[in-house]
């Protein structure tokens, strides 16, 4: 069954790779946020799907990535996107460590509320400390070079729809492979064990709190990388990126795609990005339809798109370890 997952991934990568070639730049540009979200959700689902912790404040780490890029590239003149990615990943880990230490003592609704509170605390800080963060107008994220190349001949749209697009695709594949290894490692098995039954897991020697914390930190690193991509594309980091409703959207994408499957959240990110774009071009009331879609998924499709697609991705995940 692992072959099936590999086939889906290969087909997906080829299809995504063809977008800039076959479709107008608009679509490649549209998919950049998808890459950012997909990477962030890979991490988010390690926490939610595999470890059983639903964070309602995860957008704070996307914010960290975007603002981190603004600070590093905008204020300190670091022009290499790779250095910025490493920087925000490190910052994500450092910030997640103390917050996680406090949050993972709780599970269920209390974990959700605590992360929500931390998220909104971050929002309030970004919003209120105008002289540091630019308040509601945010901070500028300047154009950076990727792989040491300036691409001076390209304007911003061309850069995004061309080199940066492939760069993000590559980054997604890389982050996906790393996450695949993590969830199929002994560490990943212990995460699933503790989310299934924490008490039993402890007696089998699973370090429940340390592992929850580790999952939290890894998910924060992925979130920060995703956030840096979002910031690069818009050229701006503003407080709305950490608002609790944005965290809600992360959960939305994950559930839409299916949190019990490895590829589900990526499918969810793609589906929501495309759906939102389509709806926005049709009606000003797209939020209503998104809400209705979410309600329908929650009620009728608790396993998300991965559940109906019947791609066997979920099966592959389980059987691969045996």
């Amino acid at each position: 069954m692992r072959g099936a997952t590999a086939m889906i991934v290969a087909a997906g990568v080829v299809a995504l790779g063809l977008v800039p070639v076959l479709a107008p730049p608009f679509y490649a540009n549209l998919l950049i946020p998808f890459f950012g979200y997909a990477i962030a959700l890979l991490g988010f689902n390690l926490l939610f799907g595999y470890t059983g912790l639903l964070s309602f404040g995860h957008a704070m780490f996307l914010g960290l990535g975007a603002y981190g890029a603004a600070v590093m590239a905008g204020e300190n003149g670091i022009k290499s996107f790779e250095v910025v990615l490493l920087g925000v990943a490190l910052a994500g880990a450092l910030v997640a460590l103390p917050i996680g230490l406090l949050c993972v003592r709780f599970i269920g609704i209390f974990f959700g509320m605590l992360t929500l509170a931390f998220g909104m605390l971050t929002h309030a800080i970004l919003f209120k400390f105008y002289h540091l963060t630019g308040g509601d107008s945010g901070m500028r994220v300047p154009r950076m070079n990727i792989l040491g190349l300036e691409f001076q001949a390209y304007n911003k749209i061309e850069l995004l729809a061309g080199p940066f697009y492939y760069y993000c695709l590559g980054l997604l594949v890389l982050c996906g492979l790393v996450m695949w290894r993590i969830v199929h490692s002994p560490f990943g098995l212990h995460l699933r064990a503790l989310s299934n039954n924490a008490q039993k897991a402890e007696y089998l020697g699973v370090r429940v709190y340390q592992f929850r914390l580790a999952a939290f930190v890894i998910s924060a690193i992925y979130g920060a990388i995703g956030g840096a991509i979002l910031g690069f594309r818009i050229g701006l980091a503003d407080p709305e990126i950490v608002h609790w409703t944005h965290s809600g959207h992360l959960v939305f994408m994950t559930v839409l795609g299916g949190f019990s499957s490895f590829l589900g959240p990526i499918a969810g990110a793609l589906a929501l990005t495309l759906l939102q774009d389509q709806l926005q071009s049709i009606t000003p009331y797209w939020r209503f339809i998104l809400g209705a879609v979410l309600a329908a998924v929650v009620i009728f499709l608790p396993r998300g798109l991965a559940g109906i697609a019947g791609t066997g991705a979920a099966l592959a995940k389980r059987r691969a370890a045996a």
Binding site: F252, V255, Y285, R287, F288, L290, G291, L294, A295, V298
Partner: peptide, 12 residues
Amino acid sequence: LLTFALVLMFQD
């Protein structure tokens, strides 16, 4: 999540 869906719908 279902109550979050309601939030989205009410906004519009």
